[in-house]
Design a protein around this nucleic acid. Structure first.
Ligand SMILES: [Zn+2]
Ligand SMILES: [Zn+2]
Ligand SMILES: [Zn+2]
Ligand SMILES: [Zn+2]
Lengths: 144, 144
DNA sequence: TGTATCTTGTTATTGTATTACACTTGAGGG
DNA sequence: CCCTCAAGTGTAATACAATAACAAGATACA
């Protein structure tokens, strides 16, 4: 595993958040979150699965999907719907839903949390959740 | 097939748009668009497939996926990424990308086209395409 | 007629996600 | 201490979504 300077920091934050919420960050869930944090961009479920199972007892799909469901439901990770992939949340318990900016060249994801603006919402529509995923070129990839 | 008052109208518009673009709305593509227009909400590819193949010569997945790719690329339909489903575009060649409001109760989709607001975009990010899918309760479903 | 391009048919495969059921573990409550 | 319940995990099979690869027909046009 690559050493990220703030990896343990983020894991520690995750522990704290789970404690506050009264849910348990079990070893499997923690390991999956670690893999997401360690990745350069969104990761596919079966790639996580492959990384989980170098050992003898090969992990099966439900194992990783259950961990991902947990991480997404607690806000520790997000699903990138348009990629069928998952990414660790780099924010804490910020208000609003995730807004993702995904570079089509290098795959990097920059994340914000924001409340959807109600400006052009249909009359009477009661918003509960939004999927917002922007694609383009990140600043680094503009040079080329 | 249910009779929609503006179904043929929309199909006629689709024909006109294809003519303008110099692409051909073949029978298969037209049939798939018809099914999308006729549906109450987003439709899954394999459901379209099932509706296509009541006849003897059973259609295969590539048939419907190719038709969908065509419709999406010409702007006649949109893919709902968070549902793995497809919906007919109810606008013409409006500017901006699709913004979908999806009712979690009745499944109805209300669509707008809009340019993403650049307000909180990361520094130097060059936007090319956005996926925006809002979930909630539509006005009709509020009463219950 | 030849030939290039677009469209469709067909078979097989890959990729993504869930169902269902068995098993373990740990926390209360008698 | 034993019982029971709930949460989490293991495992096998399956369902659902999408694509690859190649053959075959159709159209346009030199
Ligand atoms: Zn986040
Ligand atoms: Zn980039
Ligand atoms: Zn549209
Ligand atoms: Zn509704």
């Amino acid at each position: 595993m690559t050493l990220h300077s703030d990896l343990t920091h983020s894991l520690a934050e995750a522990e704290a958040l789970c404690a506050r919420k009264g849910v348990s960050l079990t070893p499997i869930r923690k390991r999956v979150l670690e893999l997401l944090l360690d990745a350069d961009g969104p990761v596919k479920a079966y790639d996580l699965l492959a990384q989980l199972k170098p050992g003898a007892g090969a992990a099966q799909p439900p194992t990783v999907y259950r961990a991902l469901d947990f991480l997404v439901s607690t806000g520790l990770a997000h699903k990138v719907e348009s990629l069928n992939a998952y990414t660790a949340c780099i924010h804490g318990e910020e208000a609003g839903g995730p807004v993702l900016f995904i570079c089509e060249k290098c795959g990097a994801v920059q994340e914000q949390h924001a409340h959807a603006k109600l400006k052009d919402m249909p009359e009477g529509f009661q918003l509960t959740r939004s999927v917002v995923e922007h694609y383009g070129l990140c600043a680094n990839c503009q040079a080329a």
